[in-house]
Structures are given as C-alpha cells and as structure tokens.
Amino acid sequence: MAGSKFTPDRGLTTRMVATMSLLGILYVAFVIALYLVGMPLWLLILVVLGFAAFQYFASDKIAVFSMGAREVSPAEAPELHAVVDRLCAMADMPKPKVAIARTDVPNAFATGHNEKNAVVCATTGIMRRLDTAELEAVLAHELSHVAHRDVMVMTIAGFLGIIAGFLTQMGLRFALFSGGARSNNNGPAPAVVALLVVLVSAIVWVLSFLLTRVLSRYRELSADRAAAYLTGRPSSLGSALTKINGDMARIPTNDLRRAEPFNAFFFTPAVSKKGFSFSQLFSTHPPIEQRLSQLSDISRQLGTGA
C-alpha cells in the first residue's frame, strides 16, 4: 500500500501475514503428505505448478469474463471514470482499468494480482440504483482492496483450496473407476492411494477454506473503514449497503445464483442471510448489521454525522 493515502490497517496486515504463514505451512505439509501416500512426484509437481501459474495470472481475467464485464473508456462511461479519477487522486494511487458488467445484480468488485493489471468494475444494476456519493463510497471500498493488495493475497490464499478441492474430486473419481485393481509393484492398490489423496486433500481444503474465510470477512470490514475515512462520508457507504441488500430480494433467483460463485470478489454477497447463523462462519462477508454498526461508529468519531 506504499504511497496510498488509504488509512493503514495494521490489523489487516497482521492477519494477512498470519494467514499466509499458516497456509504456507499447510501447503508444505500437504505436498509432503501427498508424496508419502503415494502420489507420483511428477504428477504432484505438474498439478501444483500448473494450478499456481493459472490461478495467479488468470484469476482476474476469469472473474471479469465470467461476470460478462467489459473494460470501458472515459468516452463510454464518463461519470464512472470521473468517480474513479477523483478517488484515485484522493488516495494518491494509480488508476486501475474501469469495467462495467451488464447485469441488474447491484454490485461492484475489484480484481488483479497487482496495481498494473487491477480492474475495478461496477454493474449496471448498482450504477442505476445508487447516487453519486453512494457509488463513490462503494468504489472507494473496492479501490482500498487494490491499495491494500489484499486481492493478490486472497488470490494466493485461495490457490491451496482450489488444488485440494480438485484433487479431492479427481481422487474420488479415480477410486471409483479403478475399483479393485492391484498395484504392479506390491505397493498399495491404486484405489487405496486415491482414497488417501482424497482424505488428505479434504482435510487441507477444509482448513484452507476456514482460514481464507476468516481473512475475507476482516478485509471487508477493513475496506469499509478505509473507504469511510477516505471519502469522509461513512453514511453514504451505509446507505449503499442498505439499498443493495434491500434490492437483492427483487433480483431473480437465477441471476443471484449465477453471481454467487463470485461472492468473494463482490462488495456485498449476491446471496446472504441476515443476522448471525452457523453459516456465517463460512461466509465471505461479515453480517450487514456488523458493517453498518462499524460505519455508525466511524460517523461518531468523525463528528460529522456524514
């Protein structure tokens, strides 16, 4: 976040370092465990390196493409570019690419593993529903993700879970198709190796999933704080949150389901439950009540009521 005027968040930095350290330890243990249970070394290296490169370099492009978003020029979307220009000037940060996703689902997201290829995207649904101050607050939230580099951190953090999930599915399928086939070198049967890979991968997937979810919820609260302090209008962000969550109920269920896989990228999840429930432990975002409460506290601290 060097050079950015977004409010520094030591808590976020500490949590990102701690999460990445724990995931790094888990990653090493995962690779060793897979090798010990009999997964061929060449296959292990191919899967790990292949997925690492794909996840790091292509995740942003996949997110933009999957949402049907398209980069727009200042001539095509002058008002949206004006808001981003103003925020980048206020935050003293490079301007990212600007995109629009043509969907009525009211949302916004930022992606990109570094500032050079960062993209901030707003949907036509959110642009239609929010006034300029509210849209500015939402985009400030998204730009803070870029400035804090937590888009890159979440991309890397999610890598381990993707590999573990992939190996779990492939291992189960291989075990079913290999049946009772025996090993050619008096070692464990292929089905046994596959089931051991599934067991190890499933455990790693659960642990990495929980770690990234905890970090994801905190980073959303951090982005809310950063946006509120940068714009000086926490109530605009709170108003945007209230509007968007209220209007989500009017969006066709099929549209919400199609957008749900990208909840981790979004300003607010496409499908969420109000209040606390056990499922909140697995959510990418904190409850809206917690976010609004934090913004109310910031309003009182600023003493503006804004």
Rank of each mutant, 00 (worst) to 15 (best):
L130A: 07
F278K: 11
L34W: 05
I25K: 01
I45G: 08
A63K: 02
A164H: 00
T14G: 12
P261M: 06
R70D: 09
L241M: 13
L43V: 15
L230P: 04
H81E: 09
T132A: 08
F282N: 01
I163V: 15
T124I: 08
F30C: 13
G50E: 11
F65P: 03
F177E: 14
A202W: 09
L210Y: 08
L143Y: 04
N117W: 05
R233C: 02
M1C: 06
D224V: 04
P261H: 07
L292V: 11
V105K: 06
R250L: 15
P286D: 01
E260T: 10
F109E: 03
V206E: 09
Q301H: 09
G275E: 10
L22C: 10
P269I: 04
G275Y: 07
E79P: 00
F159I: 06
D255F: 05
A82Y: 00
M67H: 09
A133K: 14
Q290E: 11
S183V: 01
S144G: 14
G3E: 07
K97E: 05
S216H: 01
I298A: 08
S277P: 07
V138I: 02
S299C: 12
L23I: 14
F265L: 15
H148S: 14
S216N: 05
D92S: 11
K95P: 04
A226E: 02
T103G: 01
V271S: 05
L36Y: 00
T7G: 00
A82M: 09
I45W: 07
